[in-house]
Design a protein around this nucleic acid. Structure first.
Lengths: 124, 124
DNA sequence: CAGTATCCGGAGAGATACTG
DNA sequence: CAGTATCTCTCCGGATACTG
């Protein structure tokens, strides 16, 4: 997760790390993607704007509460934009921010590594 | 986390996803890195082989139990090799497997995204 | 040295029911 | 439609104490 407060990534020397601190970039990313279902919600949004109902339909096993939690988390992380349409019935449009689009690279890296791992049969 | 069982990454169409399944490559990667301290342990090992005591010393706030948990998890994920030295006092050498080395790209992608996010001040 | 055995407290995931 | 309010339950993370 986190590293020490100051030094860079593999740019050692990284001194003692007493605690996984929140301002480590890796920690920040992990935090944004934290929790079950999160990456799936993001993936849905890679395809474009979605409403709450759209997402609920695409992820049927995901409860309203958890979906709302995830969306709030993603909004707080600056990954997703939430736009409430005025009127009735109420409708909310969720879409990725530019930063959210930037997650593509991260998820692709994860996909590639996981793919290799599965192929090699080193599943845990 | 996971996606459906068959289709590819952003290569839609991705059908309905009823459940975050374990065989999604992204899920596999997330699973390998799951838990507090995990990435920090991996980072220590990027610098080369380490003993249990080395790791405990580099991560002073990490308890024996959690360190042992993390190492076992990483071994199970095929990321780390565990070699027990015979004799007394007992000594165990931990190092990254080739697959573990492959995590560099993943963590770098995470680092880059987190870095941008912190710069832009969109911390949550 | 390198762990394992227990126990505890808190966070997160899900189910159900209700509201602006 | 798009959530919130509760409540439950399980899964860690951490502390402490002990062992091969």
């Amino acid at each position: 997760m986190a590293n020490q407060t100051v030094s860079a990534w593999v740019g050692d020397p990284h001194g003692e790390v007493d605690h996984p601190v929140a301002d480590c970039p890796v920690e920040v990313t992990l935090h944004a993607l934290r929790g079950r279902w999160t990456t799936l919600v993001v993936r849905e949004l890679f395809d474009g704007e979605r409403s709450f109902g759209d997402l609920a339909m695409a992820l049927p096993a995901l409860s309203d509460k958890v979906l709302a939690d995830r969306l709030a988390q993603l909004v707080a992380a600056g990954v997703v934009t939430r736009v409430r349409e005025p009127g009735w019935p109420s409708r909310v449009r969720y879409s990725l921010t530019p930063r959210g689009q930037g997650l593509r690279g991260v998820l692709e890296a994860m996909w590639a590594w996981g793919q290799d791992t599965v192929r090699s049969g080193t599943t845990r």
